[in-house]
Design a protein around this nucleic acid. Structure first.
Length: 791
DNA sequence: GCAGAGTGTCTTTTT
DNA sequence: GACACTCTGC
């Protein structure tokens, strides 16, 4: 037994130094007995702290060895955070533990059992882009009508099926279209299998199926992971829930932490219902609410509580704080989006002037498109800022190109990568040649790479040259270090040369050089140097046997995150294959220019889990926040409200809310009404910087709510028009004479009944965008079109 | 085969 | 207003 891990259970939980810093709720959660538990952790209630302290406490009280813990998060960032905090608490080799993202752990699991999972050991992972291009390619090959089945929709369909744990045969096909989609799903699966690649959903689904169907494997892992901890449980989808369930047998404990009020990912398959299901199906007897908020003053917290109280079916939680009311929540109405940005910039100047660091100030918005005008404002004011979101390092085109070459070295069957670079840099291989090649490959039932030898003529020569280049590179890079391999590929693929000749290729070359660095630090961090594989099973000394694990079972306590040796042969992935996996699973940082003290700009989604002294939530307008698409159903609206709740609870000291009467969106000026969320906030906590009313009076002025056309969607609240061509406080123009308003129903002699969506221009030039259910969206000149309002 | 013009689309995001 | 995609002329 390791001296660090006394086997006795602590007599008094409070006596452990780990628990001393916690409040009562937190301490109760951390020291729960080894049974299933659900921790409802409100915003700012110390969720990560409870999770990590729980692990530390289990380890230090000898209830489990590091190898017996599995902790699952959604993001790499959260996993890293957990590992960092944990190693600060205990002298434990966290890299050897199963702490990681769902996908990272699935990857590790599948690498270890690749034969059972019927995958090549060096299977590569398709990211979202790769997946889409694979689907498009497949659709072309099978003559799928792109009009009827857009590739994006199929991608969404396939991903959705996998998230539900469904293979093609499990998908109910009610219509002809459904049948076709399922057929394509099947073709896509066949294609991936043939090419030796898996997408993100497949990582999860396949490891779930292996756990479900293979008794020895399941028994092994169930015996092994005595404690399973899940972060952000409200964001789990159906498949992830099932996956967790297969790991949870008799005698192990699932510790789930989540907050139903912060569930903002239903749109990508998250099921808040998993929390209630968990309680029921696992017979959870320990439920603890963490309601003590350590982050915000009470004006901010009151606002958050009042807002979220409008949602139905909550598990029920109310945040409280011991801090005073603090500053009121400031509300501002701007005439234009630019003015809104300028106001925020002015406020930020004052804040910075009073000593607040710029990085403690965040400007949040609902959608990325809104950042531009704010950036302009900050830029003009000379305030440094940093925008989160957008392209990540491994998603950049030049990086994807380089990775495609590398993937072809590892796996020539990877047609997605083949097509990506077969003519990049341009080498005279056009669409025609590629089509012929694809036909040949299909006829021969082989990969594009292998089909090249069968092609003839000039096209054949060019293609042959390309394949030869790849094959030679593969030969030449045998036995080289990862760094050298990448350098060879960059030099001989022609990528560097190509970008050198390009006018603004300097950045791209810089990124390619950065790729070499990334590989270098990957090798160092993951310990790919020499003898990385043979680390002790369990750094802290407890042998698996002492855990009651069958010593005959293959043990998979591999210490290195992406380097799982084959359970039977001990064979491991090449550094290159491991690096490619790393690139897919961890797409890198969102923004290059880190470092300096800058104002933080991001979407509300991106802000989840973060906190700032001062937070601006901008663009609080109907149609934007809540977003237009969400307003048609109650679930969507409630998710928007949770999103707003997340936004509010990011603020520690100061919160600013703003909206604008007009906004340039998609190149058109839209007139927006202020968000309904303002009406759900407690008046006592707010301070209106502009007279309240303004857009608000629009409601009575136009009398909507009573005579307004309502969209009838089962059980939903009244759908509110999102765009006003005739604002109550018109910035400049006089109201138009045609009397049309967005949302109004009109009749057209040819197109029938339709709904006015947008209006623009004046007098003879006035036109309206109208959605006709039977004829689609049309732009009509009002001086010409004969439109009659429909009551 | 390729470059430039024209067209259509357009939440939120991690893996 | 930006990007991705398709079409067209060379």
């Amino acid at each position: 037994m390791s001296p660090q891990f006394p086997t006795r259970a602590p007599a008094d939980p409070a006596s452990s130094p780990l628990l001393g810093q916690l409040n009562d709720e937190q301490r109760a959660a951390v020291s729960l007995p080894p049974e299933h538990a659900l921790i409802l952790a409100g915003a700012g209630s110390g969720k990560t702290r409870v999770l990590t302290t729980r692990i530390a406490w289990l380890l230090s009280t000898g209830q489990v060895s590091p190898g017996g813990v599995m902790a699952v998060t959604f993001t790499n960032k959260a996993a890293k955070e957990m590992m960092t905090r944990l190693s600060a608490m205990l002298p434990v080799n966290v890299r050897g533990m199963w702490i990681g993202t769902f996908h990272g752990l699935c990857n590790r699991f599948l690498r270890a059992h690749y034969k059972l999972a019927e995958l090549p050991q060096a299977f590569q992972i398709l990211d979202t882009q790769d997946q889409l291009s694979a689907i498009k390619r497949l659709m072309k090959q099978h003559n799928v009508d792109e009009e009827r089945f857009p590739a994006k929709e199929l991608q969404w369909f396939i991903g959705g099926c996998k998230e539900e744990g469904m293979r093609p045969r499990d998908v109910p096909a009610r219509s002809e279209d459904d049948r076709r989609k399922v057929e394509i799903y099947q073709l896509y699966e066949d294609q991936c299998q043939r090419e030796g690649v898996v997408d993100f959903g497949e990582l999860m689904l396949r490891s779930y199926e292996l756990m479900r169907d293979n008794d020895p494997v399941r028994e092994h892992y169930r015996r092994r992971f005595r404690h399973i901890l899940i972060d952000e449980f409200q964001d789990t989808n159906r498949l992830q829930y099932l996956w967790i369930k297969t790991f949870a047998g008799d005698g192990n404990a699932v510790f789930a932490v989540g907050d139903d009020d912060q569930s903002i990912y239903a749109f990508r398959g998250a099921r808040v219902g998993n929390m209630a299901d968990f309680v029921r199906e696992f017979g959870v007897s320990h439920q603890i609410k963490l309601e003590q908020n350590y982050r915000s003053y009470s004006n901010i917290l009151d606002s958050a509580n009042a807002l979220i109280a409008h949602n139905k079916g909550r598990l029920g939680k109310n945040l409280r704080t011991t801090q005073g009311p603090g500053e009121p929540v400031r509300v501002y109405e701007a005439p234009t989006d630019l003015a809104e940005a300028q106001w925020a910039v002015e406020e930020i100047r004052h804040l910075v002037g009073s000593g607040l660091p710029r990085h403690e100030i965040a400007i949040l918005y609902r959608s990325n498109a809104q950042s531009r005008v704010i950036e302009t404002g900050l830029f003009n004011a000379g305030l440094p800022y940093r925008v989160y979101g957008g392209l990540r390092f491994f998603e950049r085109a030049e990086i994807k190109h380089a990775l495609a070459y590398l993937r072809l070295l590892e796996n020539p069957r990877d047609d997605t990568s083949f097509l990506r670079v077969v003519n990049f840099p341009p080498r005279g291989i056009g669409a025609r040649s590629i089509e012929q090649l694809q036909d040949a490959a299909r006829a021969a039932g082989c990969s594009l790479h292998d089909a090249v030898s069968a092609t003839t003529g000039k096209a054949g020569a060019n293609l042959g040259g390309f394949v030869a280049k790849i094959d030679v590179l593969r030969e030449q890079t045998q036995g080289l270090t990862l760094r050298e391999i990448i350098e060879q590929v960059l030099a001989h693929s022609g990528l560097l040369e190509h970008y050198r000749a390009e006018r603004d290729g300097a950045d791209r070359i810089e990124n390619l050089e950065e790729l070499v660095n990334a590989a270098e630090s990957f090798v160092t961090q993951e310990g790919f140097g020499r003898d990385a594989v043979a680390l002790p099973v369990d750094e802290l000394g407890q042998s698996p046997a002492s855990q009651g694990i069958d010593p005959d079972q293959p043990l998979l306590d591999e210490p290195i995150a992406s380097l799982a040796p084959d359970a039977e042969t001990g064979e491991t992935l090449s550094p290159l294959a491991a690096f490619l996996t790393h690139a897919a699973l961890e797409a890198g940082d969102n923004q290059a220019q880190a470092g300096q003290d800058a104002v933080q700009l991001m979407t509300v989604h991106a802000a989840k889990g973060l906190e700032f002294d001062a937070v601006f939530v901008t663009g609080l307008e109907e149609g934007l926040f809540p977003s237009e698409r969400s307003m048609s159903d109650l679930d969507g609206l409630e998710e928007e409200r949770r999103l707003m709740y997340v936004a509010i609870t990011r603020a520690r000291q100061r919160l600013y809310l703003s909206h604008s009467q007009t906004r340039l969106l998609h190149g058109q000026t839209r007139y927006n009404v202020r968000s309904r969320f303002f009406d759900e906030l407690p008046e006592h906590a707010l301070k209106w910087l502009t007279p309240r009313g303004g857009a608000g009076q629009a409601r009575s002025a136009f009398g909507w709510g009573s005579g307004y056309p309502s969209t009838r969607l089962g059980g939903s609240r009244e759908a509110v028009p999102t765009v006003f061509a005739n604002p109550p406080v018109p910035p400049q123009k006089a109201p138009p004479a045609h009397g049309l308003r967005p949302g109004m129903k009109v009749f057209h002699t040819k197109f029938g009944e339709g709904k006015v969506q947008l209006l623009e221009g004046q007098g003879d030039e006035a036109r309206a965008q109208i959605n006709f259910p039977r004829h689609g969206v049309k732009w009509l000149a009002l001086s010409v079109a004969k439109l009659t309002p429909v009551e």
